[in-house]
Design a protein around this nucleic acid. Structure first.
Lengths: 159, 159
DNA sequence: GCAAACTGTACTAAATTGGTACTGTATTTG
DNA sequence: CAAATACAGTACCAATTTAGTACAGTTTGC
């Protein structure tokens, strides 16, 4: 379906929510309540995020989770890596070799690897800090440093 | 899984194969043999491609399929559009509204729509003609016109 | 020691995907 | 016009993946 899984979607939601109060411990229960998700589901996502070093956890009463780095340094690609199947790859053959029976004689694998790289860069280029519009100034112009020219065309041989 | 379906993968394979002899009618049977895929599977893909105007079909003896435009004018995005669920969208909410129960109060939908646009541009930037390396000159340097600078970062407000 | 909160595994139902079968229709060839 | 070829459309089933939950355990704070 060319879609991220719901758990990954929840992951972006949860991390974005945590980014609203960075450096502050929040429990899974609080996050579940704030986002309207089930506690078990939120816990599952947080556990995966923790395994990949995106959040730190504290057990016990008044425990909870904490972003391990500033929201500016967490990208969508980081969350995808934590929650989607690894390694990243839009096709079977571009994720890892040896699995596709057509691989011998397949002439387009190299192209798919190139396409993957571009898509991944797009996901890496968006940080959690950029996900929510500023609370009040939603109509303010964006900083020039964030503007880009778009992806353009792919080079035949990745540079 | 953030992966295109196998049928979409087959679609790129089939169209690339047809691009090797453009403007020539090829039957589903011939394509299935050439690619090592099942006839029924190839037919299913070709039917979907036909519905979206990417290939033309001729019935009867000596019938078959034909690319509707030159390979340079067919992009990976065209094939994805024909074979994946429409409309294009990495998340439920960015594909179409009204389906996600969290949509009210969700602050990151706009960002996902922006991310989608970038990913889609990446897929649109690759034509079928670019998928296969030139048969003999695989090591030749690529034409400068095909080189790009990469996707860079996303603009906060799509421009 | 009790309660809050994370850890880890396992399980089930639903959705999606992949592949195929079957019947029908159009076109060409002889 | 009859037969063979090839596309058209629908429907189905097995396998895989996803989503959500349950449950037993462990750590920490009061």
């Amino acid at each position: 379906m060319l879609r991220i899984s719901k758990l990954t979607d929840y992951g972006t939601l949860i991390v974005t929510q945590m980014a609203a109060t960075p450096a502050q411990v929040v429990s899974a229960t609080e996050l579940a309540d704030a986002l309207g998700l089930g506690l078990a589901t939120v816990s599952k996502v947080l556990k995966a995020l923790g395994r990949h070093g995106l959040v730190l956890s504290h057990r016990g009463t008044r425990g909870g989770y904490l972003l391990s780095r500033p929201p500016e340094q967490i990208s969508i690609a980081d969350i995808v890596d934590a929650l989607e199947e690894q390694p990243f790859g839009l096709t079977e053959c571009s994720a890892g070799s040896g699995t596709c029976s057509l691989e011998t004689g397949c002439r387009i694998r190299g192209s798919w690897i190139r396409i993957n790289a571009v898509v991944r860069e797009a996901l890496q280029g968006v940080s959690i800090a950029e996900m929510t519009p500023p609370p009040d100034l939603s109509n303010a112009p964006s900083p020039a440093s964030q503007r880009v020219s778009g992806p353009g065309r792919l080079a035949r041989n990745a540079g």
